[in-house]
Amino acid sequence: MERMAKMFDTWSLDREVVLVKVLNHPRDRVFAAWMDPNALAQWYGPAGLAIESHEADIREGGLWRFDMVGMFEGREQRFANLMRFLTIVPNERIVMDYGTPDPDDPDRFRVTVTFDEQTDGKTVLTLRQLHPTPERRRFVIGFGAVEYGLQTLEGLAAWLDG
């Protein structure tokens, strides 16, 4: 944990991925979609993957342990995930560490989500990922992190509109 804290003490653009989505809903509703484990399981994740929650304690110091589940080449695949919630400022900001359930996951990264309500009642959601190294950032971008992240935010928009 101490290694993680030191790694994320400084912000570096060469380790950052930023995604932005304007949502046609007030920020308290957008924020609430992140705080409700049942809602998260409905909209979170890239298109084509389902969420199977194993543990959901969404509060500062809490965690969400879940699998992303999908069919690939005719067989089910599971991707284990763990979010540890570090800071939650209602309707403003969520900060979490994100990785696998392995406590020594070297690829764990920091995520900061901010919710900015506009005068027209819409919310600008900004999701910032800070990866441990520039090389890891390049790897996840090459793997599809931007596309998959935007699909996740589209899923949130569709869920809110539904």
Results as ranks from 00 to 15, higher is better:
residue 72 F to P: 01
residue 65 R to W: 03
residue 49 L to V: 04
residue 78 R to D: 02
residue 32 A to M: 02
residue 62 G to N: 04
residue 34 W to C: 11
residue 64 W to L: 15
residue 104 D to N: 12
residue 79 F to K: 01
residue 65 R to E: 06
residue 40 L to P: 00
residue 36 D to F: 14
residue 96 M to L: 14
residue 106 P to W: 09
residue 94 I to V: 09
residue 67 D to C: 08
residue 71 M to S: 06
residue 24 N to S: 15
residue 75 R to W: 00
residue 83 M to L: 15
residue 32 A to C: 02
residue 28 D to V: 08
residue 76 E to D: 03
residue 103 P to M: 08
residue 98 Y to R: 03
residue 82 L to E: 05
residue 109 F to E: 04
residue 86 L to E: 14
residue 65 R to S: 05
residue 52 E to F: 01
residue 108 R to S: 04
residue 72 F to E: 05
residue 24 N to T: 12
residue 38 N to P: 08
residue 69 V to W: 03
residue 65 R to Y: 05
residue 97 D to Y: 14
residue 104 D to K: 09
residue 39 A to E: 10
residue 61 G to M: 11
residue 97 D to W: 13
residue 40 L to C: 01
residue 105 D to H: 05
residue 23 L to N: 00
residue 35 M to P: 07
residue 21 K to T: 13
residue 33 A to V: 13
residue 20 V to M: 10
residue 53 S to Q: 10
residue 86 L to D: 14
residue 107 D to A: 11
residue 18 V to A: 02
residue 23 L to E: 00
residue 45 G to C: 08
residue 99 G to D: 10
residue 102 D to P: 07
residue 88 I to G: 07
residue 28 D to M: 06
residue 100 T to E: 03
residue 75 R to H: 13
residue 69 V to I: 15
residue 43 W to F: 05
residue 32 A to P: 00
residue 27 R to N: 15
residue 83 M to V: 15
residue 73 E to N: 15
residue 29 R to Y: 04
residue 67 D to Q: 09
residue 97 D to V: 12
residue 60 E to S: 12
residue 74 G to L: 10
residue 65 R to K: 10
residue 103 P to Q: 08
residue 57 D to R: 13
residue 86 L to W: 05
residue 100 T to H: 03
residue 33 A to L: 10
residue 88 I to K: 02
residue 96 M to P: 00
residue 31 F to G: 00
residue 98 Y to I: 12
residue 24 N to F: 07
residue 98 Y to Q: 11
residue 70 G to M: 06
residue 54 H to W: 07
residue 41 A to R: 00
residue 75 R to V: 02
residue 102 D to E: 05
residue 20 V to K: 15
residue 103 P to Y: 07
residue 102 D to S: 07
residue 26 P to V: 14
residue 108 R to I: 09
residue 93 R to I: 06
residue 54 H to F: 13
residue 109 F to Y: 12
residue 38 N to Y: 12
residue 22 V to F: 04
residue 45 G to W: 05
residue 103 P to D: 12
residue 17 V to Q: 02
residue 62 G to L: 05
residue 29 R to L: 13
residue 50 A to N: 11
residue 19 L to K: 04
residue 66 F to D: 05
residue 48 G to K: 00
residue 52 E to R: 14
residue 80 A to L: 06
residue 74 G to M: 09
residue 84 R to S: 15
residue 87 T to G: 00
residue 85 F to D: 00
residue 66 F to Q: 01
residue 95 V to N: 02
residue 65 R to G: 01
residue 53 S to G: 13
residue 21 K to V: 14
residue 23 L to V: 06
residue 56 A to C: 11
residue 76 E to S: 06
residue 31 F to I: 02
residue 48 G to E: 03
residue 98 Y to E: 12
residue 36 D to M: 14
residue 35 M to R: 10
residue 70 G to K: 01
